[in-house]
Amino acid sequence: MQNGQILEVKAGEGYLVEITPGLLSDAPKLAGRLSARLGLTDPAVRAVIVTDSNVGPLYAENVQAALEAARPGASAGVIAIPAGEQSKTPAELVRVLEAMAGLRLTRKDAVIALGGGVVGDLAGLAAALYMRGIRCLQMPTSLLAMVDSSVGGKTAVDLEAGKNLMGVFSQPVGVLIDPEVLRTLPAREISCGWGEIIKYAGLDPDVLAAVRQELGSGEDGSGLAPLPSVDLIARSIDVKRRIVSEDEKESGARRLLNLGHTAGHAVETASCYALSHGASVAIGMHILTKALVQEGKLPRAMLEDLEALLLKAGLPASLPPELLARPDLDFSTDKLLAIARHDKKSAGSGVNLVLPVAPGRAEVKKVSWEDFRAMLETGLR
């Protein structure tokens, strides 16, 4: 078993990201962590677990038992949402808020977000809104949520116009990660998380070197990505931790974390979420890199390197033929551009794009809609 790691995020009131292999199966240790992060020695404090229909049956009972071990009466119960992106809606958010009110939670109480990115985003937003804000502890169970969405305080649900358009910045009181739970995930979810790890590789040369080393053991074309090491999970979080600590609310450096996301969100939305978020980010990164190579602004070796990493991670570099063949889906440039215009990174006459400039380096640049259209057309060919 690999050793755990602790990282500090200097955003909001500051909090720790604790990576502890085996935490969810170690009741005394989990009880101690929950008590420390939520102040469960106070008899007035309770915590409700928000989870989904996949994760809840696996781990909610363990977390409830740990809450009760920390202090009898500390558990306020479990609220479960249907698994999947389709639950990340205003209607489901209101249902969770009504359930929290039905449990008579007070401002001293807390939410435990137990699940993947959808649960973390929705539960975090519910906590931020309930009684104008109660505490939220993130306990991510997917690779994507561990390395990305559980850290940084972005909470949101989707609107029909696009992803994450209804949300607030609200930092958690802590993040507890048990990487052992990754062994229960299907291959698609592991690959999805690799999409965000490869994004960090585009922002940090050290992460790029580590990704190349760990994916080097992958079987080309197998579609099965290896589990990342605790060290690589921590390295990925560290990139985000450093950027978020510098720019909590995305007015500057934090925009770098959107590498691959503008085009990625567009194809994800156009696919009606048949594409995972990680796969969509992978396609988004490939679109931009390919367009810049065609324009002579990047060496072809960068595109080839990205394609090799995506292949070993079981991620697509382009839109899958089976989705392109579906008559109910529209991946035309006009459709993707229309979706992108509703993206949070839209800036009136153009969009703030994160563009790769060298291996392990990217920059934010304002790009006109005409130029972005051209990049989409070139990158999708």
Rank of each mutant, 00 (worst) to 15 (best):
P140T: 12
L144P: 07
S142Y: 05
G133S: 12
P172W: 02
A126Y: 00
G174A: 05
E160I: 11
L129G: 03
A145N: 09
I177W: 06
V175Y: 05
D178V: 10
A127G: 15
V119Y: 00
M166F: 15
G162W: 08
L159A: 15
R132E: 12
V119E: 00
S191A: 14
K163M: 13
T184V: 09
L159C: 07
G124K: 00
F169E: 06
V173E: 07
L137W: 01
P140K: 11
V168M: 12
N164E: 09
L159V: 09
S170F: 14
E160Q: 14
I190G: 01
I134Q: 01
M131N: 07
N164G: 11
M166V: 12
L182S: 14
G124Q: 01
K154M: 12
R183Q: 14
L185M: 13
G120K: 01
G174M: 01
G117W: 04
R183D: 08
T184R: 13
G167C: 08
G133D: 11
G124F: 01
S191I: 03
G162V: 03
L129W: 10
S191E: 05
A156M: 10
Q171H: 14
L182W: 11
G167K: 04
L129A: 14
R188K: 15
I177K: 03
L125A: 09
A123H: 03
A187L: 10
V118G: 07
G174P: 02
Q138Y: 06
V173Y: 00
L125G: 06
L185Q: 15
L159K: 05
T184W: 09
V181R: 02
L144R: 12
